[in-house]
């Protein structure tokens, strides 16, 4: 951890809100991007991001510099995401209006022309979102951490406070379901 960042965290731990604002500025884009990977929905990603930083601020004094700040923050984000999945299990979420969506930047990934690409991307997003929504909250959390974040099973177990065997079990079921939804659809 850089000295500059350590100093900011220490100041924020002492109640300095400006220092906390600086911390959010440093990590904001990455954390909001991460939140989107979990939610696959812009509005939910922003809610998850806000809830995560509010929780980080309120619990900043329990951060003892024993891990990287980003690891600790990721842990909080992942746990809130998991709890949100549990609550949302039976409810539909609505994404934000087009004007707000413009604040998200899509990174171009293929050679298709613009109009084709947008149609294709939208269909793909829907397919992936649909496949992920078939998973249970635990399966979904584990799959996202493994596939999108490339976390090791051991680390996922640590973050979610469970055993490697349990993570393997959820990952196995999640992978089977995702494979069926995306490949055999």
């Amino acid at each position: 951890m850089k000295d500059n960042e350590k100093g900011l965290i220490e100041r924020a731990q002492g109640g300095d809100k400006m220092a906390f604002q600086e911390i959010m500025k440093i990590h904001g884009q990455k954390m909001l991007g991460l939140a989107f990977k979990f939610t696959k929905n812009h509005q939910d990603a922003e809610d998850l991001y806000q809830e995560t930083f509010l929780k980080i601020y309120r619990n900043l004094n329990s951060f003892r510099f024993e891990s990287e700040f980003t690891t600790w923050a990721y842990r909080i984000l992942a746990n809130i995401a998991y709890n949100t999945f549990r609550k949302q299990k039976n409810s539909q979420t609505v994404d934000m209006q087009d004007g707000e969506r413009d604040l998200w930047e899509t990174i171009p990934g293929d050679e298709k022309d613009q109009a084709d690409r947008e149609v294709y991307n939208e269909a793909l997003r829907e397919q992936i979102h649909g496949a992920l929504s078939q998973l249970s909250p635990k399966q979904k959390t584990v799959f996202i951490m493994k596939h999108y974040e490339g976390k090791k099973i051991k680390d996922i177990a640590g973050i979610l406070g469970t055993t490697e065997g349990t993570v393997k079990k959820y990952l196995f079921r999640a992978t089977q379901k995702m494979r069926q939804s995306l490949v055999n659809a």
Binding site: M24, K25, G28, A45, L103, W104, T106, G109, D110
Partner: peptide, 13 residues
């Protein structure tokens, strides 16, 4: 193949 989406600086602010 799903395109990656990143929030703009404006959105983070």
């Amino acid at each position: 193949s799903e395109p990656e989406e990143m929030p703009s600086v404006e959105l983070v602010e």
